[in-house]
Design a protein around this nucleic acid. Structure first.
Length: 270
DNA sequence: AAAACTACCTGAGTGC
DNA sequence: TGCACTCAGGTAGTTT
């Protein structure tokens, strides 16, 4: 599923094919995404895409007339393909570029969205309250420490809150907490500055490593689904219930926290 | 205000 | 083989 690294990979993959290029036609086959695709999206036909950027898991393609905001939800993907490619089930949108290439949006579960923003700034409600980028300078141990004071919420849930920091999904939250040696259920307010320091390092490490893997699949993902199958191999605790902890051999535990599967080593994570 | 919970959706997997 | 069921996931929106 598209986590932050995969969205970043998608951005890097599509950018050369869309930035500086004109959209000839926009085809909407299924308007019922998370929110109905507004008519303004189709009105971007004829516009040139001036830039492409990512904010959290949102992709923003700017034109002189307004900005296209895309989110891949849980099952979405964007591919640059030959326009003659047959429409697959769940291919909902297509952006036919004047270059001849076509950008196609595929999303079985339709948790993704395609919206129109009048301006390319972060004032839109979906972007306005987002926390810092985990790989940016504003994300630090001090920031997390201050932000978490007085919060009884589980630290795992805390770092998965996009108002706290963007792009940390269930899998990366589990992995980062394992590396940092922090129990996922620990109240955020009880996590020390030192532990947050380890956590920040861990989050950066996990995301960066994953982006690099995404980089490896960059060439393939234009053709295939872009699902990096080998990412699973590098997971340390996620989906490893009852298997030995890679550090101490204790059986990995699976619990449900905040209605999400949570994996941790009861010995290494205090 | 903060925390907890719900809804949205489909495909994969499981058990009968 | 097929049916009924559960689960996964991001996040906006609602309820406690």
């Amino acid at each position: 599923m598209p986590e932050l690294p995969e969205v970043e990979t998608t951005l890097r993959g599509i950018a050369p094919h869309v930035v500086g290029r004109k959209i000839r036609e926009i085809i909407v086959r299924e308007r019922r995404l998370r929110w109905p695709v507004p008519a303004e999206v189709e009105e971007l036909a004829g516009q040139r895409i001036e830039s492409a950027r990512r904010r959290g898991k949102y992709l923003l393609l700017r034109t002189a007339r307004g900005t296209l905001l895309l989110h891949l939800g849980m099952s979405g993907s964007l591919r640059v393909i030959d326009p003659a490619s047959p429409w697959r089930k769940h291919d909902h949108l297509a952006f036919q570029m004047e270059s001849g290439r076509q950008l196609r949006f595929h999303d079985p579960r339709r948790f993704g969205c395609a919206l129109f923003l009048p301006q390319d700034d972060d004032s839109h409600p979906l972007l306005r309250d987002l926390g810092p980028e985990p790989l940016g300078d504003d994300f630090s141990a001090d920031y997390l420490f201050e932000k978490s004071r007085g919060k009884s919420i589980a630290v795992k849930h805390f770092i998965m809150d996009s108002k706290v920091v963007v792009g940390v999904g269930n899998i990366y939250a589990c992995e980062s907490l394992f590396i940092a040696g922090i129990r996922p259920t620990k109240a955020a307010r009880k996590v020390t500055r030192e532990s947050f320091s380890k956590l920040v390092t861990a989050i950066r490490k996990v995301l960066s490593a994953s982006i690099e893997m995404g980089g490896t699949t960059l060439r393939d993902f234009l053709r295939e689904d872009g699902e990096p199958g080998y990412f699973k191999q590098s997971l340390r605790v996620y989906d490893r219930k009852d298997q030995p902890c890679l550090r101490c051999k204790t059986a990995v535990k699976r619990i449900v926290s905040g209605q999400r599967s949570t994996f941790f080593c009861p010995n290494c994570q205090k």
